[in-house]
């Protein structure tokens, strides 16, 4: 099953060379922990986004591995040192191997 939710990403559009910018991301997902039981007493199978990766001009610079202790609709913020203009690619990957991507442009003055 693909990840249907459209992720939300907040990246400053412009930065000075050498500036450290903060990036905030949010994606809707149940993050089913695999610990829960349904009303019939059957364990609800685990289904989480287990990897998030941020890359700039194709080069990954930040990776987060998530476990079932991560809250539903996972939020992640992190930093990046701006050097040159280019494009960010953000990738979320779930247990089934499905991916969701988002991108954002950065202009370095």
């Amino acid at each position: 099953m693909a990840i249907k939710s459209q992720p939300r990403v907040r990246v400053p559009a412009q930065a000075k060379a050498g500036e450290i910018i903060e990036i905030k991301t949010l994606i809707s997902h149940e993050m089913e922990s695999g610990q829960r039981k349904d009303a019939a007493g059957k364990t609800v199978p685990r289904d989480i986004i287990n990897t998030f990766q941020a890359a700039f001009n194709g080069k990954p610079f930040f990776t987060a591995e998530w476990f079932p202790s991560i809250s539903a609709n996972p939020y992640q913020s992190f930093f990046f040192r701006a050097k040159e203009s280019g494009e960010f690619t953000f990738t979320w990957k779930d247990d089934a191997g499905a991916e969701q991507k988002a991108s954002a442009k950065l202009t370095v003055a």
């Binding site: 930040f62 987060a64 939020y75 992640q76 913020s77 992190f78 930093f79």
Partner: peptide, 19 residues
Amino acid sequence: LTYRFTPESGKASASARMR
């Protein structure tokens, strides 16, 4: 969780939400 940083991160800092 596990974070993997690189020198490009600029700052080894991150926020998330957990159970």
